[in-house]
Write a protein that binds this DNA or RNA. Sequence first.
DNA 1: ATGAAAGCGCTAACAT
DNA 2: ATGTTAGCGCTTTCAT
Lengths: 354, 354
Amino acid sequence: MASLAAELGVSRTTVSNAYNRPDQLSPELRRRVLETARRLGYPGPDPVARSLRTRKAGAVGLLLTENLSYAFRDPAAIGVLEGLALACEGAGVGLHLVPASPGRDDVAAVHRAGVDGFVVYSVPDDDPHLAAVLARPVPTVVIDQPRVEGVDRVGPDDAAAITELADHLVGLGHRKVGVLCMRLARDRNDGFVPVERQQNAHFHVQRTRLEALAKAFARVGVDWAEVPVVERFDHTVDDGASAARQLLDSYPQVTALICTSDILALGALAEAERRGLRVPADLTVTGFDGIAEAERAGLTTVHQPVLEKGRAAGKLLLASADHGAPRVITLNTELRIRNTSAPPRTMEEHWFGP
Amino acid sequence: MASLAAELGVSRTTVSNAYNRPDQLSPELRRRVLETARRLGYPGPDPVARSLRTRKAGAVGLLLTENLSYAFRDPAAIGVLEGLALACEGAGVGLHLVPASPGRDDVAAVHRAGVDGFVVYSVPDDDPHLAAVLARPVPTVVIDQPRVEGVDRVGPDDAAAITELADHLVGLGHRKVGVLCMRLARDRNDGFVPVERQQNAHFHVQRTRLEALAKAFARVGVDWAEVPVVERFDHTVDDGASAARQLLDSYPQVTALICTSDILALGALAEAERRGLRVPADLTVTGFDGIAEAERAGLTTVHQPVLEKGRAAGKLLLASADHGAPRVITLNTELRIRNTSAPPRTMEEHWFGP
DNA sequence: ATGAAAGCGCTAACAT
DNA sequence: ATGTTAGCGCTTTCAT
């Protein structure tokens, strides 16, 4: 830029103005500046230098707990991403996906990200990347989890939502239930979950849902310590199927499988079919999220507005006027009763048919 | 940072080293620096200033022709994104989604993006955002389109791929065909496409496919000027259905509908069902891409490795050693003949049954 | 309407 | 092992 100014015999200020404040220049001069720039191969102001000077990066960072590519496998995550992208697009700011693998604790990527703020989507409360984000002097919005003191948050009321679902099942008469849940902590534990691990789960959403389920079933006399809960570290339909298999192999008397995501529930449905169990006659299966595939499958589930979740987070972040109190946006959820939930078969029905 | 150094009675270099080159410091001093930093609330080196100094942003930009959120609706685009994210993650660099709406010609977002390079995915050759990207002094890789002189590119051999498909249809005996294609230029034209518009299409991929189809059918005596081609600006299953409706309303004698994407083909399938046309007995339908939904639907299509496409582009960009000749990666495609293509019914069959 | 001066926060040579 | 010096390229008062 210096050489350009020299060549033109003007100051650098003038060149800068030619790009950033056309009204501060005679149109004629501006034209000359731009043309000379082209001739000399000057590509326009360097965005990084500009960011340093203006203290604005023009981008927001997104931190996920998972491999970046995970976000593109899970329909619910895609919905959140889409909503967030929408909000960013509306404001003309970029969306910077931070490369944070769950395995390696390499937090450097968070430090390196030139962004004006972060959206953190569904990470465990002890995630080192999260700590790194919070240490940065930029605003942050958390989607779903964890709850962090003083930090904005967007998410559903998980306890209320799943309580409604539990009450539905209780009302149908289910007492022998099993649960399929997602990862509860950063360490892999593909299998049954002792109550202690449930209570200490670092993924707040899962912990809340399990707690709410325990409470709802306790009200009708079910001892939660007796309820089998199977955890899966990875989140695919196949994992849901294998979890269902593991649970039903040991607890064939279960009449309802409560899954903390639609993905897992879809897998449970597949496993039920494999075993020749009719849903919902022989087995009730429920999900959580309300993704399109679940609707197609007729799954009874709790629907949450994932796109809205992403968008709300983006808007919150971009509207970060130095607020005093942290803001919390609670999204509406809706129990959608479809074709995978029904009363359990009684013993009579079991032996003599309905 | 200056005040931190002052407080500690050391130079700024030492503070910098504490963060960036632990080996240049006594562990003891380093510990003291980091602790004092915490106490003083110094959040660590500013990423933007560091980028300015090191000339490395630690991120690659992604430019899409569409609303950012479009990328999250199209399974093929998601695949590309995932592959690209994978490559970025592997290298520890961020993925910066550039907010470039197709409508507004606001190129500023491209100028503002602090990135070390760009991946451009499927944009028209006259896209102003593309021009802005190429003007930046950073390496660029194009996925699919357009072809730009001297710029790296990753994509399938569209002509060869669709020629194979055309030959399949020709072999089955189809001569009365119709085509459903995606957007051919930046202006909206939802309807039939005159040959001239086909030849002047700014989306190179679509143009290539149409040209190859024309050539393949010309070889068996079909006059391409007589072949109906319907274009859709938006790319949804519903658009595919409405395009099929528009085409079949005017050309009911068509025996095969060639769609330039699986999404459009899925819509065509829906429309065929709506009209009571059996596929493939009454109507052959083909797609392009090989997305999961297409496989489920049993669609005859051309499969291309979308994830690999994104990953290859990312690797190419990240390995941008000042190469002499531009590099081109051609991906393998594969004709997948499934249940939506069959010989056309003859007139006899039509009147008297098979 | 244009220019001069100052500095955003950092790191990389090159000393010592 | 630590300090000195010199910018990276830009924008922004404030003057003229």
